[in-house]
């Protein structure tokens, strides 16, 4: 028996079988119909361990098609290991085109950031979620948190905010900041920085959330109210940065602090690498054009 040909492994489009994709799509439809409500789903095994974005991967796998263009970011960057491997995974099993440009993607899968570039109506953003239950750390019982959502009993959430103000003088949560969706469900936006919360409000894009290990899917349809919780006298305030990006000069964007030497020197750069590159490139083009004009007029 000759083994001259190695066995070919054939994947279904998007890796997941069609039945699973239907399960996920049904859950997505339900989530879209009830904004902010956590829909349980039969979370499958995918070729990465739990905790590495399996929820996001299953959502993306269920909606992706050969006409899509996929962007994957991790903490805002396209070039981190996990972002790269997820993108390559979908290139292989779905045959989709991929991009690092936010404005060219039809699907953006993200871990812990929303891109700086505003999204449009034809786009879908898929969030990777570790703990879908915003009340989990206050109330460990699943039976109780389900009741609280069902009966709209969110007093406990405000207790947490109260405690922060009593202890620190202000609300201390700076990521995964709880929001009220469509005036009804309190939702965990995933560990995006609170800086990004305002972007979720009335966003033209469809926002989908997948928690693989916890087996929950939820969604925010386009143009939905997403309001960060706060008190009348201590309202939500997103983080701000005084600095601008040292590479592209952008202000009003989320910055990463990069330690540059052993004596604690640091620089602040855009967390959104695509935004940074394009802004820097545009700035360079402007500069070149000016330089060119100057030369021309010399």
């Amino acid at each position: 028996m000759s083994l001259s040909t190695s066995p070919r492994i054939v994947y279904n489009e998007g890796y997941l079988d069609e039945q699973t994709k239907r399960v996920v799509r049904r859950a997505l439809l339900k989530g879209i119909a009830i904004p902010g409500f956590q829909v349980p789903f039969a979370s499958r095994e995918v070729p990465m361990p739990r905790g590495w974005g399996t929820g996001g991967v299953q959502v993306t796998a269920s909606i992706i098609g050969d006409e899509d263009t996929l962007k994957v970011i991790d903490q805002g960057a396209d070039d981190t290991t996990n972002a790269v491997s997820i993108r390559q995974f979908f290139e292989r099993v779905a045959g989709t085109a991929s991009t690092t440009r936010t404005d060219e993607a039809t699907i953006i899968q993200t871990r812990h950031r929303i891109p700086e570039t505003p999204l449009g109506e034809q786009q879908i953003i898929v969030y990777q979620v570790p703990i879908p239950e915003p009340l989990r750390f206050l109330e460990p019982r699943e039976t109780e948190t389900r009741r609280m959502h069902a009966l709209e009993e969110y007093g406990l959430m405000y207790v947490k905010l109260y405690e922060d103000i009593a202890r620190y003088g202000h609300i201390a949560k700076t990521y995964d900041y709880p929001v009220l969706v469509h005036g009804r469900y309190v939702m965990a936006p995933s560990p995006t920085p609170s800086f990004d919360n305002p972007k979720m409000h009335q966003n033209p894009a469809l926002q989908l959330f997948g928690a693989g290990r916890e087996k929950r899917i939820y969604a925010v349809p386009p143009y939905t109210d997403v309001v960060s919780l706060g008190f009348d006298d201590f309202p939500f305030e997103p983080q701000t940065f005084e600095q601008s990006c040292e590479i592209c000069g952008s202000r009003g964007v989320y910055l990463d602090e990069v330690i540059t030497d052993d004596s604690g020197g640091a620089m602040f750069v855009c967390s959104d690498t695509d935004h940074c590159e394009r802004t820097a490139a545009t700035a360079q083009l402007d500069q070149d054009a000016e330089h060119h004009d100057t030369e021309m007029n010399a």
Binding site: E153, G155, L156, Y162, E163, A166, F231, D232, D233
Partner: peptide, 24 residues
Amino acid sequence: HVSAGGNVGEPLMANGWRHYGSIR
């Protein structure tokens, strides 16, 4: 694990009180 003030304030917050100063 919640402060005395938070414990006593919780029923108010559960009943829709949204002003930190008043709750406290």
